[in-house]
Design a protein around this nucleic acid. Structure first.
Lengths: 295, 295
DNA sequence: GAGTGCCTGTCCGTATAATGGACAGAATAT
DNA sequence: ATATTCTGTCCATTATACGGACAGGCACTC
């Protein structure tokens, strides 16, 4: 197999220690230590922001002494901070810095922001842009107004593709081959969720094709209804973006999502797309492509 | 104007391959491969968002074949994406996901946001919160209004401590011992910048102590003047936050920073602090501290 | 206060896994 | 056609990561 071309070039499934270990087995050119270190970093989440070596070992399946050396290294580099009193680690600021070039590359976020804020205030909900990452959507920008309920989108936060309007809208931007691949990944990833949401997932993609947005009534969070529209698909980097609007269910009139908010999110997507095309040099003109021989 | 800026090496207080290698030498419990992998990730920046194995090797000092295996691994895990045509890598969405728990832990950002936006609109500039990370400040939240000039703050973006109002305000939150340590780090990091800005750096810290904010007239970017106020210092995690307000110089009246905007940023800091104290459980009550024996 | 359980951090012989010089193929430049 | 520079890849060497096992601190219980 080729060395530096990822085996599954399009979408990378969620690693999780076992998956990493499984992959490393078959691949000689796989830096196990690096992978394990990243698995350790991924073990932190919003609920478990402080973890000791033992907890990390339990969560990742990596033996304690190994975890200790990894955390030691990560702390040395600033990706983790060590709390002497608690004998626990938490994420360090370097982790955030690492992500900056990625955000900085999406210049359209800057022009989209005020428009998103405007809509959020108008409907008293959240308006966010997400990027497809495996079987999840990752928020890359978010605006909101008022009390928006239990789900507060924030940059970097992942939500599932299969059970959310945003995920389905992003899936709708994909070429057929990638779309099929994504379905298989979702199924592999979480067969139960797939069978639960499959029909509405496909319907959502179809809705996007038909009228430019799709709706989702509390499948991800019961108290939140949402609409989402495809934004665009950057072909060369295989990045798919979508934009959504989430509103607490109790605040919605019957039919309001379909009649009012859906069209508005679609219009917003159109505006952002046009701004992208004129303001985003990354999308159209690239460096001279190095024509590769198709083997 | 922003085109000519990049050549001025945007200061890299990062560990840089040599520093990493140097550290690894003395430390047996240091996972070299993990460190090198992270150095590769750090090699990307806003100007160089797409890099091939060779460029990465040149930037990091790590031999090509080694870089190839590292990038291969990182791509497999989703931290990098590979562009087949260009034969180059760019950061993947997973990098952003990793940082989310860190952001999610700073709940005060959510309440601060609308207040920051309000001030930004009122003065037609940027209002941002930053977190001290070594000798840099890393933006963790930002609001802005109108055309704010060449410097557009964004989450994850680093700026130097020594030459910015925000850095000095953050330094002002530190206990004396940590403050001295930081000075030494800055000096070691970039002796030239230290000697250039030392006096104003110390004056800025003093200003914060005296009247709650400090000013900075274009030391970081000539066209931007700024004020900043200390926010707070989370003792156990050694996290220092500050808040700033930057305004294009041409838009400012003489004395406006001192008379109007400084007091407003100080007042904003006070508001946010009070909200933190009542809404941030992380700050005060923690898990039972594991009292460590002082050796 | 001794006993027990748990969780720290650390050691060190083993063998695995990372290393990087060297090579071959492809695309562009001369 | 030749030279140049990039790409991806191989493989023997050796350094590096591994993880079972140990010792000590803390917080319970009895």
């Amino acid at each position: 197999m080729p060395l530096s071309a990822p085996r599954k070039p399009t979408f990378i499934p969620s690693p999780s220690a076992e998956a990493v270990l499984a992959e490393s087995a078959g691949d000689a050119a796989f830096a196990t230590t690096l992978a394990k270190g990243l698995v350790v970093l991924e073990a932190f989440d919003a609920q478990a922001s402080m973890l000791g070596n033992m907890e990390l070992s339990a969560r990742t399946g990596i033996p304690r002494p190994t975890v200790a050396r990894l955390t030691h290294t990560l702390a040395e580099l600033g990706y983790l901070r060590y709390d002497q009193d608690l004998a626990k680690y938490c994420l360090g600021a370097r982790a955030l810095r690492m992500a900056h070039p990625l955000l900085a590359g999406m210049q359209f976020r800057q022009v989209a922001r005020p428009l998103m804020q405007e809509l959020a205030e108008s409907v008293r909900g959240t308006v966010s842009i997400g990027l497809l990452d495996g079987t999840a959507m990752v928020y890359v920008e978010s605006a909101r107004s008022g009390n928006v309920g239990p789900h507060v989108p924030d940059i970097g936060m992942p939500i599932p593709v299969v059970s959310t309007a945003m995920g389905r809208a992003a899936a709708a931007t994909l070429p057929a081959a990638d779309s099929a691949l994504l379905e298989r990944q979702i199924k592999t990833d979480n067969a139960e969720a797939w069978s639960t949401h499959r029909d509405k997932y496909r319907a959502g993609i179809q809705q996007c094709a038909d009228r430019g947005f799709c709706t989702c009534y509390g499948e991800y969070m019961p108290s939140i209804h949402a609409v989402a529209a495809p934004l665009f698909h950057a072909r060369h980097l295989k990045q798919s973006f979508a934009i959504n609007c989430g509103i607490p269910a109790f605040r919605l009139q019957p039919g309001q999502l379909e009649a009012e908010i859906g069209p508005r999110i679609t219009a917003l997507a159109v505006s952002i797309r046009s701004l992208v095309n004129e303001a985003e040099p990354t999308i159209a003109p690239r460096e001279q492509p190095r024509k590769k021989v198709v083997k």
